[in-house]
Design a protein around this nucleic acid. Structure first.
Lengths: 190, 190
DNA sequence: ACCGTAGTACTACAGATGGAGTGGTGTCAA
DNA sequence: TTGACACCACTCCATCTGTAGTACTACGGT
């Protein structure tokens, strides 16, 4: 029988994210999720019909957890709308993502797994397209400098910057990363 | 006994790259390499002392195979040194990487695996740092427009663009990708 | 206060897969 | 003849899935 305990279901999905980051996509098994969540063996089996469901639900959940909280958004809407503000927003973005390292690594694992699972690919494509569009829309409405293309280019650069930082931190140092964020904004924005 | 047949060893490393792309890091096993290379079970065990060695050797090999060939380099050194040339170089870069999809996907798998294997992390850090430096050096010496930071920013943007293209091709379409390459160059270069 | 029922938590087991490591045999060439 | 190698076989071990079954808990009805 499929279990309905929503708190436990959420805890299992969060555990799945941790497992993805720590063990990779192929390590995402019912057993591993059980262990990570600290619940008895067999529990995840009772909550998810298949591994595929584990992947798609993790993919749906990660984006919720990577979003800025209300306070961060509110702060970003105050003050001058200049390039310096965008620099600070981007630094905040990179730091926020880095603070949820397992989530971002899990997202990369899911992207790679999406090349093998059509259903997961559909979920991620939908989420990420919406995220990019939301960022563009937010940026344009807020009166910050830069057009849609600027936002997309910043999206590209910031994403890979985070990849570098999280996977091979010694390629660029911390200082260099901050500097690259600043330079990216200053050169990409008109 | 450790085997010395270099041709076969190379074939096994190349097979390892294919396995990484197709099965993920955790799927990189001696058995899987044997199967991919079409050699009898147990062969990879005779050539590599451990899975770790398989990872590091794959990491070392991928970058050789992602480099442009001599002809491409020669062509890039002829003609005018303007932004349009850089646009074409970047499009060539993105297409060349996309043409070796398993290699790039394997590299992503290796980056993720590097968060768990210090030895692999050291190898990749070394290779990638050298690659970035080489690109910067090449760019500056060739008289193309743009400074070191420009090259680094293009590196960031192009890498994630390839990630998008290879993992979730429907987020941006093909045309959009070309357009983003062009826009990246035009905005990042002075 | 009692009891039945539904939904869960937890345990256990059956069945199956797949991989690591190693030893041995046959082959070929110097 | 000797050394290196291709190929094959076998043992041991770790792990996963799927499901059945038991124990617990809360809650509504009486």
């Amino acid at each position: 029988m499929v279990r309905q305990n929503l708190a436990r279901r959420a805890a299992l999905v969060d555990a799945a994210i941790e497992v993805l980051a720590a063990e990779g996509a192929r390590g995402l098994t019912f057993r591993a999720v059980d262990a990570q969540a600290g619940v008895p063996t067999g529990t995840a089996s009772n909550y998810f019909a298949s591994r595929d469901e584990l992947f798609t639900q993790a993919g749906g959940r990660i984006y919720e957890r990577l979003q800025p909280d209300a306070q961060t958004i509110a702060e970003s809407l105050s003050g001058p709308r200049d390039r310096e503000r965008v620099v600070r927003l981007m630094i905040e973005l990179v730091d926020r993502i880095s603070a949820f390292t397992p989530g971002y690594l899990a997202l990369l694992e899911l992207r790679l797994e999406a090349t093998r699972r059509p259903e997961l690919r559909a979920v991620l494509t939908e989420r990420i397209r919406a995220d990019v569009e939301a960022n563009v829309g937010y940026h344009l409405e807020s009166g910050l400098p830069g057009d849609a293309t600027s936002v997309e280019l910043l999206y590209l650069a910031m994403n890979w910057l985070v990849v570098e930082r999280l996977t091979l931190p010694d390629v660029f140092g911390e200082d260099k990363i901050r500097e690259l964020v600043r330079q990216a904004v200053e050169r990409i924005l008109p």
